[in-house]
């Protein structure tokens, strides 16, 4: 596969667990050796370089904090190894701690931090060496839902602020859509599609991408987004008769399960006002039509090349 990560972008490698995303990230970092293929950073081939010479910042899934060092010493690690002057290290670490909002925790140890705080510390530690590329392995995977939401938008802001080229791995499509400006969908070690989140959502190149990026239902054997199904009280051109089997209220969203004549089960995603206007009840007959916003874009085969460049 070939994947270009444009300078200053935030690219998400998205795919199901065990699909080879993390391995790809570790290969980029130099923690794993690829069987073949190459990695370029800033136009420089780094394939043969050990991790310590690649100048990348890596945030591990479980943050890998140095348990025996305080937060300050954790963040200072990369600079201490490089034997920078003490005063410079101190100044730089203070800046970074402030950047990630944990300046008040500088003297604590990792075991005394919450998951979110450890995550911030790990980021500061990775950024300390002024990496050309920042790699994040499932950055929010180990956090509870609320902290995750908060950190997502924070990471987005942070990226605007420092604009370091970032490659992150996630299996959560919402997370990828929200945070990244470029998505690369990976499945079973193959790159399925690369592009802007809305592009991939609206024009998926394969069934896999369509199904992975959002909810899917089938109408006449064609996979469609359930929010692209419209329900009507009167017959419409191209409309199909369907029986409303069940209406489930999920807050603003309403899920309507249908039995479409001659096509079987499907479901439509409506909003609360939609359902109110229609006056929908279970057991009645309606007409269902498809507004084709997310029509799958078929292409001839998938690319399968072996090199990855990060510029």
């Amino acid at each position: 596969m070939t994947l270009d990560v444009p300078e200053g972008s935030l690219t998400a490698l998205l795919g199901p667990s065990g699909g080879g995303k993390s391995t790809l990230l570790r290969v980029v970092a130099g923690l794993e050796t690829p069987d073949n293929g190459s990695i370029e950073i800033d136009g420089r081939d780094v394939t043969g370089l050990p991790a310590r010479e690649r100048g990348i910042g890596f945030c591990f899934q479980h943050y890998a904090p140095f348990r025996h060092l305080s937060v300050r010493r954790n963040v200072a690690f990369g600079l201490e190894v490089r034997r920078r002057p003490k005063a410079e290290i101190r100044r730089r670490v203070d800046e970074l701690l402030e950047l990630v909002h944990i300046e008040h925790l500088a003297e604590r140890y990792p075991s005394q931090l919450s998951g979110g705080q450890r995550q911030r510390m790990a980021l500061a530690r990775a950024l300390a060496i002024e990496p050309t590329v920042l790699l994040l392995d499932e950055p929010f995977g180990a956090l509870d839902a609320q902290v995750r939401e908060e950190l997502r938008s924070w990471l987005r802001d942070l990226h605007e602020q420092i604009s370091v080229t970032t490659l992150l791995v996630t299996h959560d499509q919402d997370e990828a859509m929200e945070v990244a400006d470029q998505l690369a969908v990976i499945n079973e070690g193959r790159l399925e599609q690369v592009g802007a989140p809305t592009d991939l959502y609206d024009r998926p190149a394969s069934d896999f991408v369509l199904r992975f990026l959002g909810p899917v239902t089938e109408l006449d054997g064609v996979a469609v987004r359930p929010h692209d199904l419209a329900l009507h009280r009167e017959p419409v051109p191209g409309g199909r008769r369907a029986l409303v089997q069940r209406i489930t209220h999920l807050g603003f969203e309403v899920r309507v399960d249908l039995d479409v004549e001659g096509a079987g089960a499907a479901w439509a995603q409506l909003t609360r006002p939609d359902v109110g206007v229609l006056g929908l009840t279970e057991g009645e007959r309606v007409w269902v039509s498809h507004s084709a916003s997310a029509q799958q874009r078929r292409r001839g085969g998938l690319r399968d090349v072996a090199s990855l460049s990060v510029s």
Partner: peptide, 26 residues
Amino acid sequence: DQEEAAATLGAGPAAVFSRVTLPSIR
């Protein structure tokens, strides 16, 4: 994990051992 993190931060094998491994097993 910690040893790999040290490596990505620029530590060579000797520095990884003395700064991370040894303190962890002390």
